[in-house]
Design a binder for these strands. Structure first.
Lengths: 140, 140
DNA sequence: TTTTTTAGTTAGTTTTGACTAACTTTTGAC
DNA sequence: GTCAAAAGTTAGTCAAAACTAACTAAAAAA
């Protein structure tokens, strides 16, 4: 509802809420803090902001949930993360580093660059299968 | 001399000093501020830090110069910028956006990712010339 | 059921990096 | 050579995002 733009750090918190809910069914303050390497009060403050923006819901002393809008935004952010991680892995970056670097890149890249990366990654999948097929043919 | 790690913002300031010196022969506070879209007092503060770290030299009320060490560090940062910008342009991103996004990426990517990007860009040059040659042959 | 431990919250501090306002030096027009 | 404009500096404010310390609620163990 509130169209105020998210800061990088709030994007991270929102994304982590989403990831923890996908992984564990519930996003606890303690786990969000551990996953982002911050202390619990930092999470609490971030949740206050996200609540103000109408992106999360939380009853005192319990897990954090996403609103419809929060769901929508978090999904977008996570998709961006997945795209970038896959892209870096295709470049030959190790999974752990790809994850970490994707996490930084996802907040700063322009729509144009994200689009081009998408263009690069998508046909890559097709080409790489074709190439594999050719290699198989050639080697027999 | 001082091995304290530069923050992202100090890296930007140092890089801009270097770029302005390459472009104009002199890096004025006013121009640094304009180029980074900040006000002059922000530049002044950043220069105080960079002076403390022994990366720049400046006599009061005059242009900023680089120390040996500052030169070395600034060159590294600028090379990273050039690498990333070239990379994005190869992906099809427009020059202006490539410049802007490179500027953000240059502070956050791991050495591993930078290395892979370098691997990707370098052979690309060779292949693209070969490909062009082939296309020329095929079309005649 | 009481108590202890764990999880969550609140209040207040710190650091970074921007800003404005006010002041000083330098430059350049006259 | 003087004075106005431009450039640079200094001091102090503000916001974001982390932290610690101290408090409260909930859950688990006794």
């Amino acid at each position: 509802m509130d169209h105020t733009k998210l800061t990088q750090s709030l994007e991270d918190y929102l994304e982590m809420v989403h990831m923890l809910r996908l992984a564990n069914g519930i996003a606890r303050v303690k786990d969000i803090a551990a996953a982002l390497s911050v202390k619990m009060p930092s999470v609490a403050k971030a949740m206050v902001e996200l609540k103000k923006m109408g992106l999360v819901r939380q009853e005192p002393y319990s897990g954090v949930e996403l609103t419809e809008e929060g769901q929508r935004v978090a999904t977008m952010i996570l998709n961006r993360h997945i795209l970038l991680k896959g892209f870096l892995i295709k470049l030959g970056v190790s999974e752990a580093i790809a994850d970490k670097d994707a996490c930084c890149m996802e907040h700063i890249l322009s729509a144009e660059t994200l689009g081009k990366i998408e263009d690069f990654v998508k046909p890559m999948d097709a080409i790489s299968s074709v190439k594999k097929a050719k290699i198989v043919k050639n080697t027999k």
